[in-house]
Amino acid sequence: MDIAYYPGCSLKASSALYDVQSRRVFEGLGIYLKEIPDWNCCGATSAGKVDDFLAMAMPARNLGIAEATGLAEMVIPCSACYSRTLVAQNRLEKDPVLKDTINAELSRKVGGGIKVSSILEVLLTAVASGDVAKSIRVDKKTLKGFKPACYYGCLQTRFPEAVPVPDDVENPQGMEKVLKALGIQALDWSYKTDCCGASAAVTDADASDALMARIMKDAVARGANCFVVTCPMCQLNLDAYQDRLGPKHGIRERLPVYFITEILGLAMGMGVEELQIDRHLTDATTLLKELELI
């Protein structure tokens, strides 16, 4: 099956590993990601704070390009890109004047209709069809050693406007369901949709360190041996700043922060280098050795 694919800027830079893994893992599930041509930045959360018009116009152009591919669905792994694109699509549908204003300058016009999906929505379809279970190539016992705290962050389930939300807002279960198909029991915990601070990790370090410390402390207290995430911003923050916030907040433990595609890839028998797990900033391979996955 072919599906349109919007990687977004971070999957072409600091989180390039997520782009590589997504392609590999989806291919293993018989889903082929077709990157839409000449896509642009979605504006992320910054656009809404600086320029409301651009916050609509930037994702609108990508929607036009995606519709022109003729594919019925577009997957967006990055939570911020997913959120911005879904919100823009929703608003343009309700506001024909705005849609016409933007379409006037676009070579690929927005009509409406393409389904914008998060990575979890696509993976859950593959879980339901049995394709995920069928793709497992390693001994299922080794996977049972993962004790993950599934961390969703903000933009996977909470939106600034009323859009159809694919999962429970306060207690989403998408990642847990995907992991269950691999025989992994995720932990129950309280901070799965709390905020990591996003760009505040750079601009307001004390505030974001306090947020991440709460997330870390609960995960550790529940006995987690890793985080599993879908958002590249959450991944980078939790991955990069454990050594900064740990000493400040009395946290000695360090937890690897895996993308869901890394767990899936490992279950499919892919290696650390193939999945680029060696690009993590907090050690992510020791646990895999302990579980005898590598």
């Binding site: 930045c41 504006g43 992320a44 910054s46 656009a47 704070k49 600086v50 930037m58 760009s199």
Partner: peptide, 15 residues
């Protein structure tokens, strides 16, 4: 931060 990010996204088409 937010203006630098958005300006980069508009200047190059990608941040």
């Amino acid at each position: 931060f937010h203006s630098a990010f958005l300006e980069s996204g508009v200047r190059w088409g990608r941040a």
